[in-house]
């Protein structure tokens, strides 16, 4: 994974609440067996409107999306994260995210920045005309107008993002600890350790 340090540029002032992953990428786009090319299906229903933000000359290709509460709720489809990436979006700012979506975003190097509604309102205003900068190291969102909003991020996620670390590789290195657990579990709860081999 590529390291992520900063996301800067125009931010799409979307603002909508409870955006579910069916809205981000409808189910008929899930039939792919690769991660690529899902940008075409991203926000498909909304983009039927010729005046939609995502295809407007001003916001097309913008790296940041500003949304309302509970962004990414619903289905666990990681295709939602892949679709955003393919659209060029590498950061989403919202008052809250669904747990599954924020995990999927993180694993694909998309920053999910949680800010209070008042900060969101201000950024929505700025985004109409000017760029926004998210700096991961300092955990801040800034604008050309001296706005500066701090955000929280899980230290482990921050470390992985800044260094572009592969989580599967990190965990595989803990193989001995996993084996120890398996040995213990085979003694304590043998019915769980017992598999259903092919």
């Amino acid at each position: 994974m590529e390291p992520v340090k900063e996301v800067a540029g125009r931010a799409i002032p979307f603002g909508r609440k409870n955006v579910d992953t069916d809205v981000i990428i409808p189910a008929h786009w899930l039939k792919t067996i690769t991660r690529d090319g899902l940008g075409r299906g991203a926000f498909e229903a909304l983009r039927q409107d010729p005046d939609n933000l995502f295809d407007s000359p001003e916001f097309k290709g913008s790296p940041i999306l500003i949304a309302g509460d509970n962004f990414g709720c619903g289905s666990s489809r990681e295709h939602a994260a892949w679709a955003l990436l393919d659209l060029g979006i590498t950061a989403v700012i919202a008052p809250s995210f669904s747990d599954i979506f924020s995990g999927n975003a993180f694993k694909n190097g998309i920053l999910t920045v949680v800010l209070p509604q008042a900060a969101i309102d201000r950024l929505m205003e700025v985004a109409q005309t000017d760029p926004v900068t998210i700096d991961l190291e300092s955990q801040t969102v800034t604008t050309p107008f001296q706005d500066r909003f701090s955000f929280e991020i899980d230290p482990f996620r921050k470390h992985c993002l800044l260094n572009g670390l592969d989580e599967v590789g990190l965990t595989l290195a803990r193989g001995d600890a996993i084996s120890d657990y398996e040995n213990k579990s085979a003694g304590e709860t043998p019915w769980l350790a017992k598999g259903v081999a092919a």
Binding site: E78, N104, K107, N108, E167
Partner: peptide, 15 residues
């Protein structure tokens, strides 16, 4: 529920 990267993580590490 988990995403596909986590599916991969569980397949590879069972954790």
């Amino acid at each position: 529920g988990i995403g596909t990267s986590e599916v991969e993580h569980v397949l590879a590490t069972q954790t």
